[in-house]
Each structure stands twice: as C-alpha cells, then as structure tokens.
Design a protein around this nucleic acid. Structure first.
Length: 565
RNA sequence: CGGGGCGUAGCGUAGUCCGGUUAGCGCGCCUGCUUUGGGAGCAGGAGGUCGCAGGUUCGAAUCCUGCCGCCCCGACCA
C-alpha cells in the first residue's frame, strides 16, 4: 500500500477528548475515528487490525470445533420478553422506535431459538456455535475510547450439551482456546475467578488485562498466581490485638460526631479502636454489619454469606430500626442479626455508636458485649496484604475484562423450550454455556501494553502492515528507483508493506509518522546510503538499526522477522 | 442518573469575567519557488451558522433562559 494514496490520517497533536494512551494513539495513528459517544469508526488501517484479531479468534474457535454463524443484530422484542431480559437489561437494551424490535446486546436467545427449531436429539449434541458480530448496549457512560462503547464487536460463542459433564468439556475447550487466542495476540493477561452473583451459581472466569483504565479491581499474587476479583478476593486475616487493660462499657456524649474520622479526632483515638456500623436490609430483615475503622463493607461478600441480595437501609429505616441516625449506630442494644468483620473477633476497648443520636459507647468487648455477633471476612483486600494461598503480599489493581467464560445451564433453553430427546425418548432442556471476547478491547489492550513516547509498537501478528518502507527524498531518481524496487520485491515475497512514497513530506515527518504508526520493521531508503548500495533497517520495538547492503536486504528482513514477536 | 469540565475553521486553541474594528494564533489544506536522514523555509491563498433556540441591547462569541453534544469522576454494568 502506498501512503501517498491511502487514507491513514495521522495527527501530530493529542485530541482533547482522548485521555488514556490507547485511545490517544489509536486516533493519532489514524486507526479509528469517533462518530458519537461510545461509537467509533474503524479506519482502513484499524480495520486491518480488527481482521487480524478476528482471524486468530476464528482459527482457535474452529480448532475446538466451533461453527461460525452470522446472527441478526435486529431482534424481535418478543423473544427477549420470553426470557425476562427486556426487564433484566432495562435501559441498557436499545429499543427500535418504529417497530417492536430491539438491538441485540448478546445472543443467548437467538442461539436457543435456532436450537429449538433444529436440535432435537442427543445425537445432535454437542455443538459449539459462535459468531463475531456487532453488539449494541446503551451504556450510561461510554468511556476510554473503544474500551466501553455503545456499539462494539464481540466474539460470542455458545456450547449446547446434553449432559453437565459435556458442558465441563466445552467450557474447558473455551478456556484453552482463550489462552491460545490471547497468547497469540501477544497480550499479558491473567485469569480470575469471578463472582457469579445472584444470577446463577454456575462457574465463571474472566480474562483480565491490568490497566488503570479498567473498571474492575483485581487482587493478584505475583508469587503463586492467585487472582480474584476484589469482590471475592480473600487475604490473610489480621485480627486486632486484644488490649491488656480491660475497660467496662461507658457512654460518651459526642455532639455532631458522625464519621469515624470525626470520632477519632474528638476522642483522640485511632480508627482501629472504632467499630463502624452499617445497616443492610436482606430478605426484608435488618442486618447490622460492623467493620474496623474506615473499612468498607464488601457487599458481594455479604451477599455470598447471606445467600441473598442486600441493600443499605434507608435513613428513615435506620431511625426506626436502631433509634438513631447514621453516625450513632452500634452493636450495644441492637436487636437483630449482627455480622462483623472477622478482624473484630475478640477485640476489646472498642468505640461504636450508642443507638442514640450524639452518643457513642466505649469499652466494648466483642467477646463479652457482642456475644451474638457472627464473624466473617467482609473487607476489600488491599495492596500489601498476605495471599491466603502462599502468604506473599497481594497487589490490588484495576483491570479490563477482555473475555469471560460462563456455564449458563438451562435458563435460556428452558425459557424458550429448547429441548432434546435423550436415549430413552425423554425431554430435557439443552445445557448451555456462553463465552465472550471483546474484539476492540483486545485491540485497545494491545496498544495499552505496547507503546512508547513516539507511538504504537506493533508486533508482527496484529500490525496493520509488517513493514513501513520510507523513501526519504522522492524527488531523487536514485531513491525512487531503489525504494520502488524494494516495495515491489517485498510485496512479491508476500510482505504487507506500507510504502511512504509521499513526494512532499520531509524526512523527519516520515520518521515520526512511521514511529507513530509503529509497524514492526522500517526500511529507510536515503540518498546517501543508496549511493553506497545500502539502506537502513530499523526494528521499531528496540530501536535497533542496521546498515544493510541491498543484496542482503531480503535475507536480513527474513532474519529479523524470524527473531521478533 | 449525581458531581465537575468543555463546546470558536479538519485538529489544537486565544478572546468570554468587564458586550463595541474585518473573531486572532499554531498545525493541517491549496498555489508557486526553494528544501529533503528526525515533525522544512519564503511568498500568496482558501476555509467560521463562535453547539442550537429564544431573550436583553443601538450592538452579543461575550450577558440571561432553555435545550443539545462531548470528556472526566462516581453510581450502574446479564
């Protein structure tokens, strides 16, 4: 491809709307352009990257027996009503105004619909069906460029099985295929056990990439590889020390003291001497949750303990339940279930609310005074805490969800009546699994992990072009002749070459554009070198440069492509 | 949806508080000449509903009201 006649609009300046490196660079390198919030156009060079990622996905999906579909994005609303997901998705589901259609945010329903029509016997199973297709979700807040969009490309696949054992096999095939896909794409990622939540108890794992632009918090152990979403991550328990001096319970007037910080300042105490109270409603009943100091309640852990969803009590409910407003609530005199963080077990001489406005109680001994409390791990793990697996310090950081694999079960097949007959002629719902990969997220995450101050650094697998050939002064016949020949030769050898043949662009301009676009190898044809029958070859990633004789160029190029990722 | 910021040429921006020449600058673009190993120089030129609508005023990019759009933080995220 000749740069002089291609549309790769690079930008010297940083676009105002872009904040994270991948977003900035994808725009500056002429790969994408925004149309509207969360809606992006793939420009020709960007679309080449998308196609390369898609091709890797296809190869690995086909290798596990996947069959590629192309399902409609425009769906009748009715089928989404049948599974209750019009309500479940709520405002996230796009509705078409002038006909009763929705824009599909995923395709479980459509897969189950087709399975119902055609999969009748256990002999038809198992099946792995997949597609790479545009999905639509009315995200309240699109962000970080292509990472959270209202329209995005997703590889979604579905396993259809007759038995739970076969589901396990299909799930494992996806697990292995996903590792192969992300490895081939050159991403550094890790796999996290995910919170299955109230939606179903089936197994679910997420493929994550560490990034400040991420929306999930992950606890990770460098040493043993333990990784978990912070919603479920555990750490080594560090209970408060029991003080030697044993105080009695006493009441203190604390006018206008609401927060733990205010209490600590008012009484000149440390926050580890305070038990923070939060009241939740679960199954209509109040639960008092106690945490050390300013520790936040991990509501996912609380839900897992209670086996039901929770919500914070409303202010009016607080007064009704405890007799006090938020800021003065505590365990002494609380009627109802008390769940406390395990670090509070056996703690003494603690301060907490008095269940009377503007009063707190000191000298609380959890063993003596809060004997009915149940103790559980309720905290969010923080950086530096010990891994429960190996004891090494955990690191907590943000991460982007690249893909996720999920054992669905029979929710959709039951709702839509997608059944099969077993050996005995008995009806059963098809057992399903669902597996997703965000294609643009693979793209953006690769850029997030592979750039420097000059631009993107592509590896050979995903690069839009393999080689960028720079003809430095295209008004000199020697340069034109040599670079044209190299371009034609390399193209004939099967290389995808981007040839910077622009006549008016200066040398420096071409160098900077080439570094910005970031093809793995640059070949620089300059007047001085070419008169000596040499060109310069530069490897983008490490910046290494070689002066290469023209007759050795192609073997050198082969050699470099052998050695680079 | 709550909080904050922004909207002026393709891109980046000044001017807005305190209304008053022809709305300025850099990049990019067009023409010509020169230049070509790290974002060239000179000369000439094109390009603007100042987000939209209404209002105040002799006069609005600037003040007032409403709306729209974009970004960031948070909430939400099968």
């Amino acid at each position: 491809m000749r740069l002089s006649s291609s549309f790769i609009p690079t930008l010297k300046e940083v676009p105002t709307d872009a904040v994270i490196p991948s977003h900035i660079l994808m725009i500056r390198a002429g790969l994408i352009r925004q149309l509207s919030a969360g809606i992006y156009s793939m420009l020709p060079a960007g679309y080449k990257v998308i196609r390369k990622i898609s091709e890797i996905i296809r190869e690995e999906m086909n290798a596990i027996g996947g069959q590629e579909f192309h399902l409609p994005a425009l769906n009748p609303r009715e089928i989404w009503d049948d599974t209750g997901r019009v309500e479940a998705f709520g405002d996230t589901l796009f509705h078409v105004k002038n006909r009763d259609y929705v824009l599909a945010p995923t395709h479980e329903e459509i897969i189950a619909f087709h399975a119902k029509g055609s999969v009748k016997s256990y002999k038809d199973l198992p099946q792995i069906w997949y597609q790479i297709q545009t999905k639509f979700r009315n995200e309240a807040r699109p962000r970080s460029g292509v990472i959270r969009g209202r329209q995005f490309l997703m590889k979604d696949s579905y396993t259809l099985d007759a038995t739970w054992e076969d589901l396990d096999i299909g799930y494992q095939k996806h697990y292995d295929a996903y590792k192969a896909i992300f490895d081939r794409c050159g991403l550094k990622y890790f796999i996290v056990g995910a919170h299955s939540g109230a939606m179903g108890g089936s197994k679910s794992e997420e493929f994550m990439v560490k990034s400040d632009a991420g929306e999930d918090n992950i606890a990770y152990c460098e040493k043993c590889g333990y990784a978990a979403n912070s919603e479920v991550a555990a750490s080594v328990n560090k209970p408060l020390d029991r003080k030697d001096e044993q105080k009695e319970v006493f009441e203190i007037s604390t006018p206008n003291v609401k927060s733990i910080d205010e209490l600590c300042e008012f009484l000149s105490i440390d926050e580890t001497e305070c038990a923070k109270s939060r009241v939740y409603i679960s199954d209509g009943k109040p639960i008092l949750v106690l945490m050390v100091g300013n520790d936040e309640v991990n509501e996912s852990k609380l839900e897992n303990i209670l086996g039901s969803q929770v919500r914070p009590a409303h202010p009016e409910e607080l007064l009704d339940i405890t007799g006090a407003d938020a800021g003065s609530i505590g365990p002494i005199g609380f009627k109802g279930r008390i769940i406390a963080d395990m670090n509070l077990k056996d703690a003494n001489n603690m301060y907490s609310g008095a269940n009377k406005n503007d009063y707190h109680i000191g000298g609380i001994d959890f063993t003596r005074d809060v004997a009915n409390a149940e103790f559980f791990d309720l905290r969010f793990v923080e950086t530096g805490e010990g891994c429960t697996n190996c004891g090494e310090a955990l690191e907590v950081f943000k991460a982007i969800e690249l893909g996720h694999i999920f054992k669905l079960g029979t929710k959709y097949s039951e709702a839509l009546g997608a059944n099969f007959l077993d050996e005995n002629g008995k009806d059963h719902p098809i057992i399903m699994g669902s597996y997703g990969i965000g294609v643009e997220r693979v793209f953006a995450c690769y850029v997030e992990q592979n750039f420097d101050e000059r631009g993107i650094i592509w590896g050979k697998k995903l690069a839009p072009f393999q080689i960028q050939l720079l003809g430095l002064n295209m008004k000199k016949d020697v340069v034109v002749d040599a670079s044209e020949k190299i371009y034609l030769d390399l193209t004939a050898k099967g290389f995808d070459v981007l040839f910077d043949d622009r006549i008016d662009a200066s040398a420096g301009f071409k160098f900077n554009d080439a570094d910005l676009m970031g093809m793995p190898v640059q070949i620089i044809v300059g007047e001085r070198n070419i008169k000596e029958n040499t060109v310069e070859v530069k490897v983008r990633r490490d910046g290494e440069r070689f002066q290469v004789k023209l007759d050795e160029l192609y073997s050198k190029i082969d050699e470099i492509f052998e050695s680079i990722e």
